[in-house]
Design a binder for these strands. Sequence first.
DNA 1: GACCCATTATTA
DNA 2: TAATAATGGGTC
Length: 193
Amino acid sequence: MLQQQQNKRPRTRITDDQLRVLRQYFDINNSPNEDQIKEMADKSGLPQKVIKHWFRNTLFKERQRNKDSPYNFNNPPITTLEDTKIDSKPPSPEPQKQECYGSKRSSRTRFTDYQLRVLQDFFDANAYPKDDEFEQLSNLLSLPTRVIVVWFQNARQKARKNYENQGQFRAVGPAQAHLLVCTGRHEMTNIIV
DNA sequence: GACCCATTATTA
DNA sequence: TAATAATGGGTC
């Protein structure tokens, strides 16, 4: 069960200054080319590989966090055939765009008892929901999908830790048992287009 | 891009 | 201060 835990690279810490550099570029272009990456590596002193990874993750998270994010592909320039109006007021106010990167992490969600019960219940049966199942839970509990995804992530983490502590002799719940078997990641089986 | 997991930070 | 939601960097 001790898989590939051996040669993990130590986690790179990105300082605030480095983050500022990355953010600055990200704000302009979230898909930097090699030259830009090189520039950033130069300015920040970070390995290019780390920078690429940061961009990938940041873009992904940005989209998940905010569906209205300008980084989201689903916000293309409105090209409706609907005519007119378009030139009326193109400069949208955009008042609440403070976004200052010094912003704190989002406030902690407080789940209701009911929400926790449903989540735990589901987790017990299946620790790895599919996309549509996340969607259903999100819908049912009125919680953002991302919050639910994170909850399952933390729940798995907790279950594993729990299992490690309790020793291997104890009976484990189906979800935990599943975790033990599921060494690999969740495969994207049958994707229906 | 899904998931892992150590870590950070919020809140009862 | 414990529990745990959220984050960030790593792996596959």
